[in-house]
Amino acid sequence: MVRTLETILAIASLVVATEMVFGAEAEFVQENCASCHALTEPDFEALGIEARAERKAPPLYYAGDKYRRDWLVEWLQAPERIRPAGVYPPAHISSSPDGDEIDEASLPTHVVLDQSQAERVADYLSSLRPYQERIDSVTYEPGSISWRMGQMNFVKFNNCIGCHQDEPGYGGVSGPELHTAWDRLRPEFIFSYTKDPVSWDPHTMMPGGDLNDGAVEKLANYLKAVSEEAE
């Protein structure tokens, strides 16, 4: 009983502390980013799949569980395209008899922050961790994999290449580029999202894997190898 109360108080003071520490940042993000980015979890069930078609930007309400802070700081000052066909590809496609093509001109450019804004926003976003438990429960230890085995897994066995690029200009374009995934994303997130994308986003356009932990580990290690190669 006493312990429960203590826990509640601890959590409550944490919440209050976050709000006090990041009051200005939270307000800044609410004002400048909420028109495109979800900052609280949507009611997916009630909205229905139509809402995916209206999504303007990747959700940020679990940004702290997903992104590396240092990457956020850099990207917010010099944003570069991550999704070759935008956040909802059908909105950026023109259909012709020869097949669909991306309408580059329809892809938006991103707002740029200065260094101090970027640092503070990155700190605030990194504090948004509703799925911390899920991330903490991931036991994946980054390791190495041979180039050949990695590619076999990414291309042949699991068809990640169907929707993702593992090098600039090569691979599917409906998903975010993955040759930069290791620099952008926390390793535990890469593991968890690859294993069960629907648990992160019921409206994800990525098919849920029936992958076992071993297969997911190999894929994550391949993404690590790919980004180290690029450096």
Partner: peptide
Amino acid sequence: TYCSQCHGLNGAGGGIN
């Protein structure tokens, strides 16, 4: 949402991927 990525917006098989 799910299928046009590969099968194309008009279903004829010419998706962006």
